[in-house]
């Protein structure tokens, strides 16, 4: 059964109003900002963002904010705990009648992959376990970006970062596999999880619209193509995001109460098309073509989609 979009069928249904205003100092062409801006079109302004330190720190730099709603800054490890505090405060104030119900707010964690896959994993686990009614928006640029692109648990095999450079000992650069945070989240059985990519705006908006009907933890993993860290021209951010999806490296999917559905069937173009666009993979092509590494990446993608096809056929 193919996944059907119910609310967002046409591009011109994307709301015109902006909720993340210009003037931030995120990089020109930031894929993370592109995803957040689209997400905010469904989230609206009645939001408290709880932001873990990372590039998104740069959203609100004193004394400026791009939001009409609120923004609270936390350490890298504690944004979900901050979200719990804000949620509890809102609930208590509403219960006591000190805040009208109409002024209720959504609580949205913003976390980079460094926070999400590493430092805040335990506090996220706790928040999901407690059934906290919140959104978690991870903008995944596959490294510790704000401090100069150091290796994170989200860095894919074969990518070069400042702490996993290409060297004689490690000609493929990063040797570790990207941690499967989607499955780690899913093991907690939250009501809603989705992956999104900014080049697929209707898929993204639809998922936020579906999540809006759910109470409890709603977790989003947004591919955040990053010109600065992935080393490509800022104008190519949508192209890079598109190829991540079309090669099958970034599956678009959701899990409702643990049941996974792939929301888009990619063409499965060869992974080279994606890798070649980015400087962080250049050492796989020059000066020597690293066939083994490329075959390894292609092999993981193939294995993933074989599992998906099998699972979907056997229902």
């Amino acid at each position: 059964m193919t996944w059907q979009r119910e609310t967002f069928k046409k591009i011109k249904q994307i709301p015109r109003e902006e909720h993340v205003l210009p003037g931030t100092s995120l990089c020109a062409g930031c894929g993370g900002l592109e995803s957040l801006r689209l997400a905010a079109k469904v989230l609206g302004d009645d939001v408290v963002y709880v932001n873990a330190a990372g590039c998104f720190t740069m959203l609100a730099v004193y004394p400026f904010t791009p939001f009409k709603g609120s923004w609270l800054y936390t350490t890298m490890g504690s944004a979900p705990a901050g979200a719990q505090g804000v949620r509890d405060a809102l609930d208590v104030l509403i219960a006591k009648g000190r805040l009208p119900k109409s002024e209720n707010l959504k609580v949205v964690v913003l976390g980079g992959d460094g926070s999400t896959y590493d430092m805040a994993l335990s506090s996220t686990s706790g928040a999901i376990y407690r059934g906290l009614d919140f959104y978690y928006f991870c903008y995944d640029n596959e490294a510790y970006g704000n401090t100069g692109m150091q290796l994170s648990a989200a860095t894919p095999y074969g990518a070069r970062t400042s702490t996993s450079p290409c060297s004689l000992q490690h000609p493929f650069a990063t040797m570790q596999e990207k941690k499967d945070i989607f499955e780690i989240w899913r093991a907690h059985k939250p009501p809603y999880i989705a992956t999104v990519a900014p080049r697929y705006p209707l898929d993204l908006e639809e998922k936020f619209a579906r999540a809006a009907k759910v109470t409890g933890p709603k977790l989003f993993l947004a591919l955040s193509a990053c010109p600065t860290g992935w080393l490509y021209d800022p104008g190519e951010t949508p192209e890079v995001a598109k190829l991540a999806v079309e090669t099958g490296l970034w599956p678009l999917k959701e899990a409702i109460n643990g049941v996974v559905t792939h929301t888009y069937v990619p063409k499965l173009s060869p992974v080279e098309t994606y890798l070649k666009l980015q400087g962080r993979f250049r050492h796989l092509f020059e000066p020597t073509l690293q066939k083994e590494a490329i075959a390894h990446i292609q092999g993981s993608v193939n294995a993933y989609w074989e599992r998906v096809n099998l699972a979907e056929r056997t229902g």
Binding site: L21, P22, G23, A60, P63, F64, T65, W71
Partner: peptide, 18 residues
């Protein structure tokens, strides 16, 4: 603390010069 008591004032910062 650095408290910002304003809404959507980032537009005052012009990034056109980039």
């Amino acid at each position: 603390t650095a408290r910002i008591s304003a809404a959507a004032n980032s537009v005052l910062r012009e990034t056109g010069g980039w």
